[in-house]
Amino acid sequence: MGFKLLSKLLVYLTASIMAIASPLAFSVDSSGEYPTVSEIPVGEVRLYQIADGVWSHIATQSFDGAVYPSNGLIVRDGDELLLIDTAWGAKNTAALLAEIEKQIGLPVTRAVSTHFHDDRVGGVDVLRAAGVATYASPSTRRLAEVEGNEIPTHSLEGLSSSGDAVRFGPVELFYPGAAHSTDNLIVYVPSASVLYGGCAIYELSRTSAGNVADADLAEWPTSIERIQQHYPEAQFVIPGHGLPGGLDLLKHTTNVVKAHTNRSVVE
């Protein structure tokens, strides 16, 4: 069995187990497998329904001669939608809004960016022009300005110390501490036991640490421990890039980060 097929099978099995364990909360999309990078042309966006009122959005972007996937989250909030992270750029984010209108038909009224990198804030200006209120932590807003990236308009308070959590509509926002970046936030959907790890969490097929220019490698494993301790009931975990899975993604990420750190020390 090929690795790609095995990865998709694991996603399907995880979703099936969740649907059985929580039949009222989960209505997993039966329309197909989780979209992969090879299936999404740059400039297009796919939506994948995880649970009743919960979707991931998947886009792709060219970077350094390669094409990478990027995940975000959409959560229903009454007759409105909360968006977590842009679709990595203005063109993708405009396509995301169009796809949401086509498939869901509810307005996106608020959006949260989970850290300051372009795959999370690139497209904020498109959201703002569409009347979406954009939010991020003060740290993310400051770092985005320093980096020359787009800056969300509103500040999220109460997320300055490791372990801080605040309720934001249908989700809980959690600051686990520094990891992929010093400002990275985690998003949890309690009604569906869905954990969105953003770039602080890796997919299972990833074996290298990737972009760690703004990471705190020493603190990252401790931050992941905080996530595990705060959300032990999480059933569906979405990484910032690639295929979702279960809580095993947290341990896998820790292993990859520690291996990278150990290699760096040896070198």
Rank of each mutant, 00 (worst) to 15 (best):
residue 2 G to H: 15
residue 2 G to M: 07
residue 3 F to N: 14
residue 3 F to M: 14
residue 9 L to G: 12
residue 10 L to V: 14
residue 12 Y to C: 10
residue 13 L to S: 15
residue 13 L to P: 09
residue 16 S to A: 15
residue 18 M to K: 15
residue 18 M to W: 09
residue 20 I to A: 12
residue 24 L to I: 15
residue 28 V to L: 09
residue 30 S to Q: 12
residue 32 G to S: 10
residue 41 P to D: 11
residue 43 G to T: 03
residue 44 E to R: 13
residue 46 R to H: 09
residue 47 L to W: 02
residue 51 A to H: 07
residue 53 G to V: 07
residue 57 H to S: 04
residue 61 Q to K: 15
residue 64 D to H: 10
residue 65 G to R: 08
residue 67 V to S: 15
residue 71 N to A: 05
residue 72 G to H: 03
residue 75 V to I: 08
residue 82 L to A: 03
residue 83 L to Q: 00
residue 84 I to K: 00
residue 86 T to Q: 00
residue 87 A to C: 00
residue 88 W to T: 00
residue 90 A to I: 06
residue 91 K to Y: 09
residue 94 A to K: 13
residue 95 A to C: 05
residue 102 K to I: 13
residue 104 I to E: 00
residue 106 L to R: 09
residue 106 L to Y: 09
residue 109 T to F: 08
residue 111 A to M: 10
residue 113 S to R: 03
residue 121 V to A: 04
residue 122 G to T: 08
residue 131 G to L: 05
residue 133 A to D: 14
residue 135 Y to G: 00
residue 136 A to T: 06
residue 136 A to E: 03
residue 137 S to R: 07
residue 141 R to F: 03
residue 145 E to H: 15
residue 146 V to K: 14
residue 148 G to T: 06
residue 149 N to V: 09
residue 150 E to P: 07
residue 151 I to Y: 04
residue 151 I to S: 07
residue 156 L to M: 07
residue 158 G to F: 07
residue 161 S to C: 07
residue 163 G to P: 03
residue 167 R to V: 11
residue 168 F to E: 01
residue 170 P to G: 06
residue 171 V to S: 00
residue 172 E to M: 05
residue 172 E to F: 03
residue 173 L to H: 07
residue 175 Y to V: 02
residue 177 G to M: 03
residue 177 G to A: 03
residue 182 T to S: 13
residue 183 D to W: 02
residue 185 L to W: 01
residue 188 Y to V: 02
residue 189 V to C: 02
residue 189 V to H: 06
residue 189 V to D: 03
residue 189 V to A: 05
residue 193 S to L: 15
residue 194 V to K: 01
residue 194 V to A: 05
residue 196 Y to Q: 00
residue 197 G to T: 05
residue 202 Y to N: 05
residue 203 E to C: 07
residue 208 S to P: 07
residue 209 A to Y: 06
residue 209 A to P: 10
residue 210 G to Q: 05
residue 211 N to T: 09
residue 211 N to H: 11
residue 212 V to A: 14
residue 215 A to R: 06
residue 215 A to H: 06
residue 215 A to P: 05
residue 217 L to K: 05
residue 217 L to S: 05
residue 218 A to N: 13
residue 220 W to I: 01
residue 221 P to W: 06
residue 221 P to L: 12
residue 222 T to M: 12
residue 227 I to D: 02
residue 230 H to K: 15
residue 234 A to C: 01
residue 234 A to P: 08
residue 235 Q to C: 06
residue 235 Q to F: 07
residue 235 Q to Y: 07
residue 239 P to W: 01
residue 239 P to H: 02
residue 243 L to A: 15
residue 245 G to Y: 03
residue 247 L to D: 08
residue 248 D to P: 07
residue 249 L to E: 02
residue 249 L to D: 02
residue 252 H to R: 03
residue 254 T to L: 14
residue 255 N to C: 06
residue 258 K to A: 11
residue 260 H to G: 14
residue 264 S to M: 10
residue 266 V to S: 14
